[in-house]
Design a binder for these strands. Structure first.
Lengths: 109, 109
DNA sequence: GTTTGCCGTAAGCCATCGCTTACTATAGGC
DNA sequence: GCCTATAGTAAGCGATGGCTTACGGCAAAC
């Protein structure tokens, strides 16, 4: 199972979502990513670190450069996690509602 | 389109995910939700406000009580948003990665 | 009308976060 | 060796976030 907490915290930041979108289109060096934003390069470097620790992007060394790219499949895993912990609840609600219809004398709390 | 920023920020908090899971199983009053946690009731009330403003839960008045329940479909919308903004580039990456797994002769990392 | 129970709001505290300006580390050109 | 380019790290700052206690607003019971 993915680290849902780290993944959601990483995605909760608009700038990081934009970075992820960029490296999802094509792999980019840290400096290339930084040129797309008005913030300083160290700020981007920190964002990249958060995304990498969350397992959303990969890092590859190429000389002095660091090339980053989105890791395929992570979003699907997150979707499965989210659907999972909500899907069970919805199923339970549905079953409860149907049972309720067949037992109108049921005294709820 | 959903408010992805508010939704992700709301879900980035572990306590709020647990609350969402609770009211996803069955609708609960604010006080009932609070009994599941060690934090104070106002803290829970604030969390419920964040979840409600993100459109993840609904609020219904029942006398002096407030009954909360998960809103079905929100997670699906979030999933669509996440899958969408990764774009075709990432889909291509995923296909390439899967092809890579079937061709272990190509060693790269 | 007063009291009791349920619950949101206000104000303040402390931790975390995102950003900045240094500084350090590594790779390569000269 | 020296210098430049690329990029992560450290320290500090202001803003945000989650928590607490105190309070105010409603609804029902008496």
């Amino acid at each position: 199972m993915i680290d849902a907490d780290a993944t959601l915290k990483a995605l909760a930041e608009p700038r990081r979502r934009e970075i992820l979108r960029l490296v999802g289109e094509r792999e980019l060096s840290a400096g290339q990513v930084a040129t797309h934003f008005d913030v300083s390069r160290p700020a981007i470097s920190q964002h990249l670190g958060v995304l990498r620790q969350a397992g959303l992007i990969s890092e590859r060394r190429e000389g002095a450069r660091r090339i980053y790219a989105a890791i395929p499949g992570r979003i699907e895993e997150l979707n499965e996690y989210l659907t999972g912990f909500w899907g069970e609840g919805l199923a339970a609600l549905k079953v409860a509602a149907e049972a309720e219809q067949r037992r109108p004398s049921h005294s709820a709390d």
